[in-house]
Amino acid sequence: MKKVKRGQDAKDGQKRSLEAAEYVLGLADPAEDILSSDRARTDQIFAQEVEVWQNHLVALVETEIAEQTPPPNVQKRLSRSIHMSRERFPSRVRLIWDSLTFWRMMATSATVTAIIAAMLFINKPDGEMIAASYYVHLQGPEVNLTFLAKGSSGAEGMILTSIPTINKVADVSNSTGVRKLWLLPNDDKPIELGVLPINPKVQLLIPYHLVPLLKDAKLAISAETQIGSPKKWTDDSFLATGKFVSL
């Protein structure tokens, strides 16, 4: 049994390495390239493999590509271009733009705005389901995320949107592997809502037929292991859970 597992691990490792190589070397087709790029951001093991292939590439370039002195006019043109870009975008502004504090302040403002907007929309019903809004906070050792679920007249369900909070999504992205969101209805088996994208703003759809379940349900996030989702669910199956709170 162990031998079979080792064989499978080796196969998975080769597949991962090949995908990383094709991504780094530009052999992947555009669709695969987008998937690999996304995977490199969300899967640490894959990201390490990408780094390995990048290092090979650099090593080969450093030893096999002879240095060639570029024509001097390139540096002159570059200096002019850089000078112009600095005038358009002074370094102090650039420093503020690049500063973490600035973006933290922006994220905090966005959070406050999102909550106020959510509160304002509660009393504007377009039908019972559309009007309903929920707030859910997921907290665990590796995860700290807040979501707002709100109906939308144009959508086919409730939109579950992450509320931007400082470093919270990043906490998830730093972990290894894919993360999935689950709906845990009261006394029923978990319902998969989809893969959690590692974006500052996450949006997922909860189909309307599931909306009535939200009242007593929990939202959960799981680690998707290479062998797939766990077959038997226990509290330990999830990285974090949080109860839907009606707004």
């Binding site: 240095e67 060639q68 570029p70 540096q75 850089i82 370094s91 420093l95």
Partner: peptide, 17 residues
């Protein structure tokens, strides 16, 4: 951080390769 001197140095070091 917008340091043009550093950029010039970086260019001189790396551009031949």
């Amino acid at each position: 951080t917008g340091d043009a001197d550093a950029f010039t140095k970086l260019y001189q070091l790396t551009s031949p390769r």
